[in-house]
Design a protein around this nucleic acid. Structure first.
Lengths: 100, 100
DNA sequence: TTTATATTTCCACAAAAGTAGAAATATCAG
DNA sequence: CTGATATTTCTACTTTTGTGGAAATATAAA
């Protein structure tokens, strides 16, 4: 994973509302959660929510699929896994010694 | 770890320059790296660098200590560990089933 | 077709972040 | 004290982000 991509993904998760959205999607699991459910849960205007979701989608952390009038959003677990791996590989100690 | 704190830390790491700084500090290890070394490595103006470092310090990801005229910066590994744990605990699947 | 529901796009504005030169501060050497 | 080095603070400016109302789009139901 490129450092630029990691930074982009973290920038998106680095916002309380978006992180809440993502966490809620994680709770919802792989089958996805309707945008409307997120809106009801987090209590934010649709336009604002739509904006945040589209940013998460843009960096690949969330995927969407429509069923009728309802848009389901689901977390892309693999992307988060990659990000965590990046942090572990590039930003942690690699010693055999003790910890902090 | 609070969601707000996690978001703040990720917002700081969510910037290519700051992430580069942090990664460089990780390479430098626990004894710390002079600000001047970071500047030479990343090739950015002092005032800009100082600004970015202070943000990393503000969220606890970096600590500093002065030795003479030189300010050493070191990563606070434990903070990153907490962040990674947050992501694993709050934003990953907790199933016994297969992966993505 | 008309109407209702779900969500986005458009628009405008306020707030925050990024950038960097210049001046200031801190510390040490001579 | 004077000068050199290391780094920050101040200041100003540009760009990006966040926010949400209103209008538009998509889909389905009546």
């Amino acid at each position: 994973m490129q450092i630029k991509d990691a930074a982009k993904q973290m920038a998106e998760l680095g916002h309380a509302t978006r992180l809440s959205i993502f966490r809620y999607l994680v709770k919802g699991g792989r089958q996805g959660v309707p945008v409307g459910d997120i809106q009801a849960e987090l209590n934010i205007p649709g336009s604002t929510l739509s904006h945040h979701i589209s940013r998460l989608v843009a960096v690949g952390l969330v995927i969407q699929c429509r069923k009728g009038r309802t848009l389901y959003c689901a977390p892309q677990y693999s992307k988060l896994d990659e990000l965590i791996d990046f942090l572990k590989d590039e930003c942690c100690i690699h010693e055999t010694a003790a910890e902090d």
